[in-house]
Design a protein around this nucleic acid. Structure first.
Lengths: 332, 332
DNA sequence: CTGTTAGCGCTTTCAC
DNA sequence: GTGAAAGCGCTAACAG
C-alpha cells in the first residue's frame, strides 16, 4: 500500500480510503490511485485491515453435508443474500458429527467471524459454551430448538413428518413404515422419526415399523436395501416414509427393479423436495421445506444482526418459522 | 492472550507457543496455560497471528456449483486430505460464470490464501493475471488446459465424451445425439460437446444431432425437455449422450413417462457417475471420473506445494491426469 | 524451556 | 479531502 501511495503521490491512508466503498476521495485522486493499483498489481490485504478495524467481513456457516441439495440450496440462499454486502460466507461441513462440529466451531471462531450459523439445535457442551461466549450473533437453522442459543430459522421436523403420516393415512394407507438412520447423529432425522412415531400412535396405526439403515448420511442405496428388508419382515406394510428424498428414491428404484408397483403395492414418501423427486418417474410425494428460502431468511437475518451489532445495538433473539407443506405426487 | 499469560504466570509468547502444535513448552507450564485458557474462555485470534507469521492457514477452492455431487465430492476429497494439516479450505461457488470467478479470485486473494484451486482452464484475463501474480501455488482441476497457469489435476473432457460415443457405436447405435448447454459458460460441457462432435465425425456417423438446452447448470428438468425436443425433431436417433448424469436422468425419467423404452427405443448415457446413476432403474450408463479422487489428488498436491513454498523451494508445475472410464450399465 | 523486542500491513482517530 | 501518529493481537527472531 505504501508503494501504491508513493506512485500515486498520496499517503497510504488515502489509498486505504480509495479502496473501500463509502469513501471520501476526490475523483482525480482516486483515478491516480486506481491506476497505480493496476500498474503494480496490488491486491488489498484484508487480514491486516481486519486487525485494526475489528471487522473480518465474513460469517461462518456450518452444514452437515455439502453433498445434499437441501443444505447446498440453503448455503446458496445465504450466499445470495450476502452478495454485495461486504460479508463473505465461509462454509464448513460437519459430516453429521457433533464432535466435528465442535472442532469446526472453534476453528471458525479463531478467525473471528462476524456471525455464525449452525445447523440444528444439538451441539456439544463445549460448542455451546464457545458459541455463547463468542460475542457474535449465532443462528441455528433447519430446526426449532427448545432452548435456542440465540436466533432461529427453521421448522419442526417432527411436525413435518407427522403431517406426512397424516397425509398417507388420509390416502387410505393403514400400515405406514419409516426408513431412517440408525443413530442420533442426524438430529433432524431423529426428530422426523419421533414425529412419525407420534403420528402413528395418535392415529392408532400399527407401530414397530421403523427400519434403521445405518449412519447418516443415508443415501439412495441404503433406501433400496431398507425397502427390501422392510417388506421381507413386514409384508403388510402399504406405505413408507423415508428420512429424505434420497433414500425414498433409492427405495422407489429398488421397487421398480423388483416389480413392486408404486404406489399400487406400496406408497413411498420422501422428505425435502429435492429436484430429483420432481423429475423422477413416478414423481415422488414429499415434504417441501424451501431450503433456499431458509437460506435467504438466514442471510437477511445475518445482515440485520451484524449491522445491529456494529452499531452496538444487538438484535434481540429472533425466531423465524419457515413453512413446510406435504406435496402429494404420484408415489402415494 | 496477555490475560491468559498473566493468569498462568508466564509471558504471552509462552502462551502463543503452548497453543500451537510443535511447541516446546514444559508439561506443567502448558497445563497451567490450558487451565487459564479454559477459565477465561479464550479463543486464539488467527487473524492477528497471520499478520506476523505470514501464514493464513487456508487455501481457496473455487467450484462452479455447490449443488453438483461431482464438485462437492471433489471438495470433500480436498477437505479430507487437508484435515489435520493446519490448512483449512475456503470454498467459493462461481455459478459457472467467469466474471463471478474473477470477482471471487480477487475476494479470496485479499484474504491471502496459501494456495488457490480453480475449476477448469478458462478464466478472464484479469483473473489469470491476478492468479499468476499472487505468488502462491495455483491448481486448475477437472480439465487439462493447453496452457495451464501452473499445476493441473484433471482429465480431457473431450476424450472422455469421445470414449462414450465409441462405446455407444460399439453397442450398435448409429444415430447418436448430444444434449448439453447452449452457452460456453460451462467449459467442461463445451469440451464434452467437442469430443462428441469429433468422435461422431471420425466414426462417420450422422452429424447435426446436438440439442442445446439452456444455460448451465443443466439440471434434470432440462434433460427431460431436451429429449422430447430431440425425438420430435430427429426421430431416427437411437442413442443420446448427455452433458451430465443429471440431464441424462431427466431424459430417462421423461422417456419412462412417455413409454419410450430405454434402451429399446433409445439408449441414454450420462457423464459423471453420480450416485443417482448407480441407483436409478434402469441403471444409467455413464462416464466415471472419480470426483473424490480428483479432490484427494488436489489436496495432496496442495499440501506438497504449500510446504515447498514455505521452504522457499517452489514445487515445479505438476500435471496429474486422473482416469476416466466408460461404465456401461443398463441404459445402453 | 522461556522471555524480550520489534514489527506484520493495514485502519482508527484526530488534526488540518 | 487528505495526512500523521498510534496501535490492532499476535509471532519471528534472538537471547538467555
Amino acid at each position: 500500500m505504501a508503494d501504491v501511495a508513493a506512485r500515486a503521490g498520496v499517503s497510504a491512508m488515502t489509498v486505504s480510503r480509495a479502496l473501500k466503498l463509502g469513501s471520501t476521495v476526490s475523483a482525480a485522486t482516486r483515478a491516480r490511485i486506481m491506476q497505480a493499483v493496476e500498474d503494480l498489481g496490488y491486491v488489498l490485504d484484508l487480514t491486516a485491515g481486519t486487525l485494526s478495524s475489528k471487522r473480518t467481513g465474513f460469517v461462518a456457516v456450518l452444514i452437515p453435508s455439502l453433498n445434499n441439495s437441501n443444505f447446498s440450496d440453503t448455503a446458496r440462499g445465504i450466499g445470495h443474500r450476502l452478495e454485495g454486502s461486504g460479508l463473505q460466507m465461509l462454509l464448513g461441513a460437519t459430516d453429521y458429527d457433533l464432535l466435528k462440529e465442535e472442532e469446526l466451531v472453534e476453528a471458525m471462531l479463531r478467525r473471528r467471524p462476524e456471525a455464525i450459523v449452525v445447523t440444528g439445535g444439538r451441539h456439544t457442551e463445549r460448542a455451546r459454551r464457545q458459541l455463547a461466549a463468542a460475542g457474535i450473533p449465532v443462528v441455528e437453522m433447519w430446526d426449532l430448538p427448545e432452548a435456542p442459543l440465540e436466533h432461529v430459522v427453521g421448522f419442526s421436523n417432527a411436525a413435518a413428518a407427522g403431517a406426512m403420516v397424516e397425509h398417507l393415512h388420509g390416502c387410505g394407507y393403514r400400515s405406514i413404515a419409516y426408513i431412517g438412520g440408525s443413530t442420533d447423529r442426524d438430529t433432524r432425522g431423529t426428530d422426523r422419526r419421533r414425529g412419525y412415531e407420534r403420528a402413528v400412535r395418535e392415529l392408532k396405526l400399527p407401530a414397530g415399523l421403523t427400519i434403521a439403515c445405518g449412519a447418516p448420511p443415508i443415501a439412495m442405496q441404503q433406501g433400496g436395501e431398507a425397502i427390501v428388508d422392510l417388506l421381507g419382515r413386514h409384508p403388510e406394510v402399504d406405505a413408507v416414509l423415508c428420512v429424505s428424498d434420497l433414500s425414498a428414491f433409492g427405495a422407489l428404484a429398488e421397487c421398480q427393479r423388483r416389480g413392486w408397483a408404486v404406489p399400487g403395492r406400496l406408497a413411498i414418501a420422501g422428505f425435502g423436495d429435492f429436484e430429483l423427486s420432481r423429475c423422477c418417474h413416478p414423481r415422488l410425494t414429499t415434504v417441501s421445506v424451501d431450503a433456499a428460502g431458509i437460506g435467504e431468511a438466514v442471510g437477511d437475518l445475518l445482515l440485520r444482526a451484524v449491522t445491529s451489532g456494529r452499531d452496538k445495538a444487538p438484535l434481540p433473539p429472533q425466531t423465524l418459522r419457515t413453512p413446510f407443506t406435504v406435496t402429494a405426487r404420484e408415489t402415494s
